[in-house]
Amino acid sequence: MNAVLLIRTLASVVRGATPLVFAGIGETITEKAGVINLSLDGTILLSAMTAFAVAYTTDSVILGFLAAMAVGALMALIVAFGSITLRQDQVAIGFVLTLLGAELSSFLGNPFVRLKGPSVPHLPIPYLADVPVIGPIFFNHNLVVYLGYALIILSWLYIFKTQPGLKLQGIGERPEAAFARGSNVNLMRYVYTAVGGALVGFAGASYSLSIKLGWSHRHTAGNGWIALAIVIFGGWHPLRVAFGAYLFGGLKSLGSIFQRVAPGIPSQFFNGAPFALMIVALLLVSSGWLDRLLIRLPTRVRRVIHDSLLGAPPGGLGRVFVKE
């Protein structure tokens, strides 16, 4: 593989992983607050369809993104309402919304299948895009990709370095204690669930308006589940979640290259690979095998590897907080 091709591949990894960055970090924020929004696969489909339909009809990409974010937030709010206010099973509501989002996207999106519509314009960053190697890989994309970078850094800063971020961790980690310190746990959970959902909606829009242009039935199916798995794999940490997103995005780009280089391998193999990787990645972080392997290493090295690879779920994840 020559250098030009390698750079082009890495650039496509960065671009292709962008929706997973938005969805993964959105869900991380939601889960940090203690709520599981399982509906991602359906939400991304419905918001991708909405974004395309709105952008097509109004000829405005921005309106498309806004509509998609509204859809994402709305789906998330249904999860919040059903589980926080009505105390129904969070997983059940999320699962129903997964199917419902997919069906609705098929029904409402039917008139928009395979139409050519507007998309986010290409926007190389002046000067930065001309830097050798780094430029074409990172700074020769569109605004959506750059917003992804910003989200990774800002979400990390917000969650770990600011006062409201620490409170966010509190309501997810130990809701009773957070309540005792004066946080309005359930209100904050509503807010963060909606914010996370809006980012998931943004991810949907970034498929249909930027990464995988247009709309077709089940256009993005499967990616929501990958995003949910990435949150676990990333140990509920935005930087590691972003790393996971690039890993899975990279797999997809590698697939299309291998198909050209080695046409003997059946193409189905590459369609299945992300899901096999999803299971393997979760095994790696959940099974405890890694810990058993690491035990041979010196404590200091072990701690570094452990902390950089593994993370625990928020203590109050999925548990409804009830005021006594």
């Binding site: 997983v91 589940w225 299971i279 979760l282 095994l283 099974s287």
Partner: peptide, 23 residues
């Protein structure tokens, strides 16, 4: 034995089963 939540194990294996069928 692997600590992988059944939702993710299940979803992953669903997709793999479909891919296997197509293959």
């Amino acid at each position: 034995y692997g600590g992988v939540h059944e939702i993710f194990g299940g979803v992953g294996l669903n997709f793999i089963a479909i891919v296997l069928t197509n293959y």
